[in-house]
Nucleic acid binder design. Sequence first.
DNA 1: AGCATAACCGGACTTAGGTCCGATTGTCGA
DNA 2: TCGACAATCGGACCTAAGTCCGGTTATGCT
Lengths: 200, 200
Amino acid sequence: MNDELLRVLRRPPRERADAARNRTRVLEAASRLFAEGGVAALTVDAVAQAAGVGKGTVFRRFDDKSGLVSALLDQRERELQEAVVFGRPPLGPGAPARERALAFFDAYLAYLADHLDLVRLSETAAPGARFRIGAYVFWHRHLAILCADRPDPDHLAHVLLGMVAADLNAELLSQGIDWGRIRAGVAAAVDALVAPVHAP
Amino acid sequence: MNDELLRVLRRPPRERADAARNRTRVLEAASRLFAEGGVAALTVDAVAQAAGVGKGTVFRRFDDKSGLVSALLDQRERELQEAVVFGRPPLGPGAPARERALAFFDAYLAYLADHLDLVRLSETAAPGARFRIGAYVFWHRHLAILCADRPDPDHLAHVLLGMVAADLNAELLSQGIDWGRIRAGVAAAVDALVAPVHAP
DNA sequence: AGCATAACCGGACTTAGGTCCGATTGTCGA
DNA sequence: TCGACAATCGGACCTAAGTCCGGTTATGCT
């Protein structure tokens, strides 16, 4: 039982070398397949085969397909997150809440426009996947803090993020509503929703 | 070619008796399976077998699983639609736009609370299924008309409907946000978004 | 260096939605 | 009543996500 105690105290052993190598292989293979054939070519079997790895390995690393695609998007999303936390106003700290929110949605829509297919895949691979992605939780906190003076910031933040759901915006585009209208519409809504409670 | 002409002019032949009988059988089987085992029991194979019908038949009638579930919900949804078109204010015609919108969301949230699992299934069975359902198109028109004086009623109506997406609300419930908070939050958002443009 | 252990690997297997096509059967016109 | 046509039927088949488990290998301790 001394052994057990020691094992608990010991820091978790670092990732095995083969595991790390396989992770990068899988991500590279996925990236290449997507570049060549779009989302249609991005099946787990194809990725595993292209990476020279078993299917089980992919699922152990990334949990599910949604996780794999999220990992592909991770880099870009991280940049946006850092700009929000450490960047200059109005995206970063320092600007009034409403302007920060507007800046965030502008930046996020640009990101979405660049990666709509992949984001959509990561959000719809499994029902409810969208809300489990780390980035979603992050954006939700950010917006809830910006709306702190409203009656229910938690709910409002979810509603705001609903406007940038990949599925919705893919549908809007297919209906002929272009990114310009989307940006304008989102900005107007943010303006109306994040405004401080108006005194009558 | 005379034949062909006649065939075109002739009204489309009514649904074959066996086809109609099978449709009701499938719907009854689906309804029973759901009552007994919830959404988990609602697989297409199980429904087909319980209805004593081949799998192909189910798909021919209802296109896909989403269509089957939508058909199950059709009755209830129709009642709501009729109340909106022919009912008394504030849900029906006659009340100011903002009040009609508020009444609609209240009624829809009640419907959603009663059938969350099924609605979720019908909305997430296939990516983008939500927007193809007839009812969605109907609600979208209704709301766009109510927002006619806003800059982009089309986009705004989509954003408003985003608040009652089944997936989102299932997530909110699982996070401990109850229907009372949801109703209040939605009402506040509708109030802010549907308000006529304020003169500065 | 050698060994015990735990993590990792990978492919066979399961599940479920959706497609297809030969066989069947209802419907319409004569 | 009967025949031809077209819609319908049904189950075998396909695809793709996700699970499982016996074999393998890196790791860390002695």
